[in-house]
């Protein structure tokens, strides 16, 4: 039971930020597509902006790993 709760906690730690990242990337992506259509030279910056919200899911992933390593 304890292991199941740890697994659930780890899943939530990575799952919730993943949703948040996906939401942010969707917004940035649609705005970025419009920007690139208007100014193709901004493509590089848009790609970088697209990668910025990934910090959330990466940190969530780290927390999940730590939960598993510490408690499981």
């Amino acid at each position: 039971m304890e292991k199941a709760i740890i697994a659930l906690a780890a899943a939530l730690a990575v799952g919730i930020p993943a949703f948040a990242t996906a939401y942010a990337q969707a917004k940035i992506g649609s705005a970025g597509a419009g920007t690139v259509a208007e100014k193709p030279e901004t493509a590089g910056i848009i790609i970088i902006l697209e990668a910025i919200p990934e910090t959330m899911v990466i940190l969530g992933f780290v927390v999940a790993i730590m939960l598993i390593l510490q408690f499981a």
Binding site: E54, T55, I58, L59, F61, V62, I65
Partner: peptide, 12 residues
């Protein structure tokens, strides 16, 4: 600084 943990995470 914590953001650099992505190097390990993506690598993993």
């Amino acid at each position: 600084i914590l953001s650099y943990v992505r190097i390990a995470a993506i690598g993993l």
